[in-house]
Amino acid sequence: MDAMVRELSYAQAIQEAMAIAMDMDERVFLMGEDIGVYGGAFQVTGDLVERYGTERVIDTPISELGGAGVAVGAALTGMRPIFEFQFSDFATLAMEQIVNQAAKMRFMLGGEVSVPVVMRFPAGSGTGAAAQHSQSLEAWLGHVPGLKVIQPATPYDAKGMLLAAVADPDPVMIFEHKLLYKMKGPVPEGYYTVPIGKADIRREGRDLTIVATSIMVQKALDAAAALEAESIDVEVVDLRTIRPMDKQTVIDSVKKTSRLMCVYEAVKTLGIGAEVSAMIAESEAFDYLDAPIVRLGGAETPIPYNPELEKATVPQVPDIISAARDLVKGVR
């Protein structure tokens, strides 16, 4: 690796992006529960309050609906708020402002306004926090025209996509898997953006396309590395944005490999996997398929507390390996 490029954790990368955004633009400010002196539930804002003060790093009361609405209102009127939900699960308390207001404001007003708000959602399971603190609800928001919904999977993308989100004139929802926060990776200093709406081919391969999101990207890469030993050559596409989706990158990959598997942590049915599969079925790539499409997603249950059960409810590397092997070998 380039010796010049530092390694940062995913959380540090987000923090750095927020600091750069605040340095570059005085309209940018942060809002959320316990993001000040506490540093955020996952220490993503960390010590930013010491550098930017309580006027720009604002602790809200425990009021998700109100807080989201205030962020929408501020964005509507010239500010650039970045609103942190303490857990993505609490989006459920703020759906009104996100879905009925932020997403539709520009449309309803005939393009007279825009809502450049960024909302950050720590998501996913694996921390033993049980059913109300472990969900992956990105597809809920992905269903709403007017929103952009992204899921960076690396520290590099976490920084670059956050900066792209702040620069974006429309509401951008960022889902950050909690288990990624400690993941380290190369992150250049200074300002750069990673485009919203562009997937990334994280590994090239000939036999099978795995379209993965968020933490499943790393799991898919691990599975791909293991499958190399069996001469199964996996291409891993990191979707990165679920709305608007980069269809062409997925279509081109499937045309090359002729097999498709979707891997994501959210509940399997009626979600991202369904969307990607249907999109391929509707596209010219359909004719290239050599096997039925496979979806690996979360179990059709809330996330349980017991650690073994918790692990069993979301796809793990061995699950991906065996599903990929079966798919390539034609086992149904």
């Binding site: 033993g128 926090a129 049980a130 059913a131 109300q132 603190h133 349980p304 507390y305 017991n306 059960l309």
Partner: peptide
């Protein structure tokens, strides 16, 4: 809660 809920539930 038969191990499904833990402390918080």
């Amino acid at each position: 809660c038969k191990g499904r809920g833990g402390s918080m539930h």
